[in-house]
Design a protein around this nucleic acid. Structure first.
Lengths: 295, 295
DNA sequence: CCCGATCATCAAAATCGGTGATGGAGCCCT
DNA sequence: AGGGCTCCATCACCGATTTTGATGATCGGG
């Protein structure tokens, strides 16, 4: 009865949510800034709620905006799927794709190989770096698409997966009982920051025994009992022992995996890759990602 | 990049798929017939494929149309979900809802009670009849929304669930070994037709020992060993024995559960109920319902 | 404190979609 | 077979809606 929402408006809305800026979003969707502004205005009128808070420099989502965003993304994804389906499969081009090496090792080979099968003409240049540097590289135009773990700083990007974080040690190792606790983690890794914060909170003494921007090096440090580590579920390796959380080592914050696109990386091959990754790695459809459902 | 699809067009497209008619669909979406016609034309141009075959009287989906339909439905559903979410929960009104009694017994109470919790102001008048009569009642304007099992005759409606059909007998009963095989089923029940067809195919002699439009009566007939029955998985009851299929009793065709709306029953409270039912009973999201994915 | 950047707003212009009438085709019924 | 009915496609025109480009208000940084 009532006419459905306008996907165009939703696209603009999501673009804003993704990059935190009307102006930048306008570039992404090939519109003028004023057009985007008015689209949002109409959308907000339509839904009767304000979706974005514009305070000075930053644009952030309201709670209603968050709720809408998750669903709008869903629609845009199936929209992309449809376009894909009807595009004669002749999508071609190349994508500069960045990913933290901890994920690269285990998850990506599988995902990318199946992607190559369905999109043989798209070349994916994969490069691995720590999340921090990926975001930096994105800003300087080195990437079209990156997957990264969202730190505390409100980085923009599409959150599509959360993963339980675990304290890990080597089997039968002594590191866990050493005082101060030796820990291993990336250089500016947000997981490390969270781990330290947690340790400080409970007053446990620790020392950073090993630091590297290489996930394999960290894993080795843990496996050789040099230190205790912290890893997301999907990065656990054989030979590692998950330490059950208790008052000595409280639970860590979940890892938040997000995808971020360059300003030009909308539609076409970029959507194809992003949708593929989200479809295969994403784990928050209809749950955490869709709050406000209990209303 | 390329502008997203127009949900309005997709809505019209789905309406046509649901009722098999441009003219009727136009009524449902509050447009003129020519507007709908042009929308479809634009949509087909956009996707570069013909979606509907118009041969004379009937309008049916092409394979591309089928693929699109499933995804379009998905989008429209989340669209409805959004509208719902932002509608202050003041959806109110009443819905005349029809359902075959075999489903009414087990599934509906649960589903409807949770629906009442989220939509306390919507009154749902439930009435149970055999699918055949539900469709008839829908044509004569007795219902706003019905759930029914799709027979062989191409009835229009949104397919949202398939269920395995089983031959059933009473525990320890003799009906199964009786010659000719006594069977029990609804009067014009499409399951019965399929069962008979299957029996004829293998040359097994049978007789219709019991007929009733009341599911409980049928169930009783089976339980008291009067006859062998055939039921979908979710209608199985304690005391019934599922007969493993073999050359004596071959597998039956799956039950196809669909939802059908009256011409006015689009949007608002109707979408709320339909979405709720599909979300809770539906079992074909992203699989059977989305062919063409293997391209 | 001023400059640059960002978002909102406005009126004009262009685009886009809907309307109602018309035409051709198929089906039903006689 | 043929008339009448219904259905879908098409067209020109009209109208609504959106985009544009310019301008103004506000904020933050240098």
């Amino acid at each position: 009865m009532s006419t459905p929402l306008d996907l165009d408006q939703l696209q603009s809305f999501c673009a804003i949510a993704d990059c935190g800026s009307f102006t930048e979003a306008a570039r992404r969707v090939n519109k003028t800034q004023s057009a985007v502004s008015m689209q949002i205005k109409r959308l907000e009128e339509r839904l009767g709620r304000s979706l974005l808070t514009r305070d000075g420099r930053s644009v952030t989502l309201t709670s209603h905006g968050e709720a809408l965003y998750a669903r709008a993304r869903k629609m845009l994804r199936t929209n992309a799927e449809i376009m894909d389906l009807f595009s004669d499969g002749d999508l071609s081009g190349s994508i500069r794709f960045g990913v933290p090496d901890d994920y690269a090792v285990r998850l990506l080979p599988v995902i990318l190989s199946s992607f190559q099968r369905t999109h043989p003409k798209i070349v994916v240049d994969v490069r691995t770096q720590p999340s921090e540097e990926l975001i930096e590289g994105m800003k300087t135009g080195k990437y079209d698409l990156i997957v990264f773990t969202q730190g505390t700083s409100q980085e923009y990007g599409e959150l599509f997966r959360t993963e339980r974080m675990f304290w890990v040690a080597s089997h039968g190792g002594q590191a866990l009982n050493t005082e101060p606790l030796p820990i291993a983690g990336g250089l500016h890794c947000c997981w490390k920051e969270n781990a330290i914060e947690v340790l400080n909170r409970i007053g446990r003494d620790y020392r950073v025994a090993y630091t590297s921007s290489n996930a394999i090096a960290i894993a080795s440090a843990v496996l050789t009992d040099l230190a205790v580590g912290f890893l997301p579920e999907s990065a656990l390796q054989p030979g590692m022992r998950v330490i059950s959380e208790d008052k000595d080592l409280p639970r860590l914050r979940d890892a938040q995996i997000a995808i971020m696109r360059a300003s030009h990386a909308y539609g076409g091959i970029y959507d194809a890759l992003a949708s593929h990754i989200i479809a295969n790695m994403g784990n928050l459809e209809g749950k955490d990602a869709l709050p406000m459902a209990a209303e």
